[in-house]
Structures are given as structure tokens and as C-alpha cells.
Design a protein around this nucleic acid. Structure first.
Length: 280
DNA sequence: CTAGGTGCCTGATTGC
DNA sequence: TGCAATCAGGCACCTA
């Protein structure tokens, strides 16, 4: 599923491909994919607008348009944004098609229909709820410590909460906890300052490596960049989707448990400590 | 604040 | 073989 590294890769590609392009017309094929405004207004209002820049915030792709409005795309579980050379054969998973003045098509394809597109004058209406971006310069170990302190919730659900930290999903939350040698059920407020520091380093390093590899495309899965290419970060995963396989560090089989109904992968030996001092 | 549940969805997998 | 049931998961929203 697309998380911060995949969305970052996509946003960089789209910036290169779309900056300066103008929208000729918009076709909404599945109206529920458009969160706001209503589909007919979305189709009418976006005509002739120019795409000035494309960035990322958390897991949102953010497109700045002429007239200072903003198009946000959340890919959900299975969304893609593809730039196609022509009008393109719109397959059955196409939810919104943006026909560009230069003849290309920006396709929002989303089999599972969990993705959403927003057209807003003020993107903060949606983005304002997000916590800090873990790769932002403003994000420091001290800031992470502040987010964890006083929270009795387990680390795994906390890392997935976009209001706390924006951009981690199931893959990179598990990978970050492995890299930091922290058990996913450890209560957030029990971390020592050294452990906070190592979690901070782990999150940033896991995300940076994944971006360097242009994101993770699982064997079965579907993540593709703006030009349809898969990412190559799969070989970098240490725990996610490696249930029963030996830990790269100690050889112990990787375990999968459910935490808040989400599959959670970890090494029971490397990440074994549930409490400070090693009490289980 | 925290924990747990539901609904939204459909391709892939599992079960009989 | 073939069909039906189950699973996967990001997120908003609800209840206790």
C-alpha cells in the first residue's frame, strides 16, 4: 500500500511530469472517489486550470493549481496516479481522468475505492489534522519524545495514527520498530530517552532508504510510480510479510500478531522487551 | 484518554 | 473443478 516513500516518489515524478501542464477536462467515473466538492462541480471547476507544483504531505499528494486552489489525492489502499501519453484506454479501475491540454491523461485508478480526491481553496481543512512529517527538518528526537510522553497506547497503533505522525503505514511502522529493536506492544510512555532517539533514527532511516529505492512493491501488489514502474525496496524489508522467515539479525522466525486488527510483524528476540529492564 | 468495533471496497486466498 | 466465504487494510466514525 502506498505510504510516505511511495507518495514521495510519486509526487517527485508528478512534479517533473506535470508542472506547467493545464487541465482540459475532467471525467469522474466513480463519484464517491471525489470527497469534495460534488462530482459535477469538480468536473466543471477544474477545467483550464494549470498545475503549478506538486508536493507531498503525509500520504497526500498535493497539487497547487493556478488560482491558488489545491488538489489533494489520498491513494488509500490501492490507488495509483498515472500519467499516460495519450487519451488512454480507461480501464475498469479508473475513478477519475484528468485530460490535459497537451493530450496526455492523468489517471486516478483505484481498484479498492479507498482513495479520495479533494479540490479545495484551503488544503489545511484536510491537512491541518495531520501530525508532523517525520522527514521534516522541524521534526527532532525531542519532538518525537513529546508525542510519546504521557501516551499509554502501544507504539504500533501510535505510529499508525496520522494525527500523531503523518506518513507511516503498516509496512514502515513495522520496519521502524524492528530497526529500533522495540516491541510493537511497548507502551509509548515507557521509552527511555535513548530508545526515543533510536526510534527517531530508525523511522528516518527506514523512510530515506525506501525513498532511495523508489518505494516498496510487494510481489502480489500493485504500487506503481507515475509511469507504471514498480519500486525496488522489497529486498530491504526485514519483518513485513516475512512471517516465519528467519530474522536477518538472529535467525529467530518472524512472528505475526494482530494489534488493533492490523497485521504486525516483529522478531520476538530482537524486539522482545515489553518493559524497561527486560520483564516480559 | 484508551480500547474496541463498524463500514467502506474488491482482488486474492482459503475452505469445502 | 468451482463456487462461496474470508481476508487484507487506511481511515472516519461510533461506543463504552
Amino acid at each position: 500500500m502506498p505510504e510516505l516513500p511511495e507518495v514521495e516518489t510519486l509526487a517527485r515524478d508528478l512534479r517533473r511530469l506535470l508542472r506547467g501542464a493545464a487541465i482540459e477536462s475532467v471525467q469522474v467515473c466513480w463519484s464517491r472517489s471525489v470527497a469534495t466538492p460534488a462530482a459535477d462541480e469538480f468536473e466543471r471547476g477544474l477545467q483550464q486550470r494549470e498545475i503549478l507544483d506538486v508536493t507531498r504531505r503525509g500520504k497526500f499528494v498535493q497539487m497547487y493549481l493556478s488560482d491558488s486552489t489545491c488538489l489533494l489525492v489520498h491513494l488509500g489502499m490501492s490507488g495509483h496516479l498515472l500519467v499516460e501519453p495519450g487519451v488512454g484506454a480507461l480501464d475498469s479501475h479508473t475513478r477519475v481522468a484528468f485530460h490535459l491540454v497537451d493530450g496526455r491523461t492523468l489517471v486516478f485508478s483505484d481498484p479498492r475505492k479507498f482513495g479520495r480526491v479533494f479540490w479545495l481553496a484551503d488544503p489545511e481543512r484536510v491537512l491541518g489534522r495531520l501530525g508532523p512529517d517525520p522527514l521534516d527538518d522541524e521534526f527532532t528526537p525531542g519532538r518525537l519524545g513529546g508525542l510519546l510522553s504521557g501516551r499509554r497506547v502501544a507504539l504500533k497503533p501510535l505510529l499508525l495514527d496520522q494525527r500523531v505522525l503523518a506518513g507511516l503505514g503498516n509496512i514502515y511502522a513495522d520496519e521502524s520498530l524492528f530497526r529500533a529493536h522495540l516491541h510493537p506492544l511497548r507502551k509509548a510512555n515507557t521509552l527511555t530517552s535513548g530508545e526515543v532517539e533510536s526510534l527517531y533514527d530508525a523511522i528516518r532511516e527506514v523512510l530515506r532508504q525506501a525513498i532511495h529505492n523508489r518505494g516498496t512493491t510487494l510481489e502480489d501488489a500493485r504500487y506503481r510510480d507515475a509511469e507504471g514502474r514498480p519500486g525496488r525496496n522489497l529486498a530491504n524489508l526485514n519483518v513485513y510479510h516475512r512471517t516465519g522467515k528467519p530474522c536477518v539479525c538472529c535467525g529467530t522466525p518472524i512472528v505475526r500478531i494482530l494489534v488493533g486488527s492490523r497485521g504486525t510483524h516483529f522478531c520476538p528476540r530482537c524486539q522482545g522487551q515489553l518493559m524497561v529492564g527486560g520483564i516480559h
